[in-house]
């Protein structure tokens, strides 16, 4: 039982929730704009690969983050052009992009680094962990919150920022209005197209950070199809919270915590496959609870 509240479990839960959180915050914008976005997965994977490239060539994780974000934005732009301007089906484009990104990153891995499958390279520099001066010495809390990866704190700050953008900025308001009533947005003399693009690009930006965390959040390696469904899990977090930032954040944290707990349970002899399965099962359970709650609330 004590493993549940073990500071190490909580700390690794927070860490594991970061990629899901970033991607879910991005997916929240597209959800608010009424775009069903399963391409989160491909944006994350694209960014994961290019962040490794950036980190390798400039030996700086920040360069990795930049390149990862740029790559993810380009992929998001492709998604936007096809679905907004050409009216292509979002699910078909999403699946094609996910398969395409898987293939493209695998080939680029081979072309640029000469390896297949995965890349372990001393040139890949991860983001460092940092201690928070005062908090560090607080018992329990210090062990959970301090000493995390830089991106973890960046994720927390981003979550707050996203809340403000979504609820206290014109752009956020308009994106939400677009999802609820596109005609109203048009009547107000605004371009729905523009705000749909903005939502998708914001999503690209945040998925860029999500993807960067996968290789540069401490692992310092890239492997083929590294996102492994995390984009879909993030989408579930978005649907659970129905686009409300607080709920989306909470769902992401729970997913991360569950994953950390499952990894811990492995130490107690729980079979590997069941451990790996748990985030996906939990996602379904959460989606069920979230939807039921929403239905109950009318």
């Amino acid at each position: 039982m004590e493993v549940l509240f073990d500071p190490a479990t909580l700390a690794s839960g927070i860490k594991l929730s970061v990629p899901i959180l970033f991607a879910a915050l991005g997916g929240m914008f597209t959800h608010q704009a009424n775009v069903f976005n399963i391409a989160l997965e491909s944006l994350m994977l694209t960014s994961a690969f290019f962040s490794v490239v950036g980190s390798c060539y400039f030996s700086s994780p920040w360069a990795g983050l930049m390149l990862g974000i740029v790559a993810s934005l380009v992929a998001a732009l492709v998604f936007a052009v096809l679905t907004v301007d050409f009216g292509a089906d979002v699910i078909v484009v999403g699946i094609a992009m996910n398969l395409g990104a898987w293939g493209a990153t695998s080939i680029l891995l081979e072309l640029m680094f000469g390896v297949r499958g995965f890349l372990l390279d001393p040139r890949i520099v991860s983001f460092p962990s940092v201690e928070i001066p005062v908090v560090k010495s607080v018992p329990y809390l210090g062990q959970v919150v301090s000493g995390q990866n830089v991106l973890v704190y960046l994720a927390a700050a981003t979550a707050v920022a996203v809340h403000f953008v979504s609820y206290h900025s014109k752009m956020g308001l308009r994106i939400r209005a677009l999802g609820q009533n596109p005609a109203a947005v048009e009547t107000a003399g605004l371009s729905p197209r523009r705000y749909r693009y903005l939502a998708i690009l914001l999503c690209g930006l945040l998925c860029g950070a999500a993807g960067t965390f996968l290789p540069l959040g401490g692992l310092s390696m890239f492997s083929e199809n590294m996102s492994a469904g995390k984009g879909y899990i993030a989408l579930a977090a978005v649907l659970f919270g129905n686009g409300v930032p607080g709920l989306v954040i909470a769902a992401s944290l729970v997913f991360g915590y569950a994953e950390a707990l499952a990894v811990k349970m492995q130490g107690f002899g729980l079979p590997n496959q069941l451990v790996l399965m748990s985030p996906y099962v939990l996602t379904m359970l959460f989606l069920f609870i979230g939807t039921r709650r929403r239905v109950a609330a009318g």
Binding site: F36, I38, Y232, M277, Y280, L287, F288
Partner: peptide
């Protein structure tokens, strides 16, 4: 409940 996410999750399961 959204079938897209559930079916995707069930692939991994």
């Amino acid at each position: 409940i959204n079938e897209v996410v559930n079916t995707l999750m069930l692939n991994y399961v």
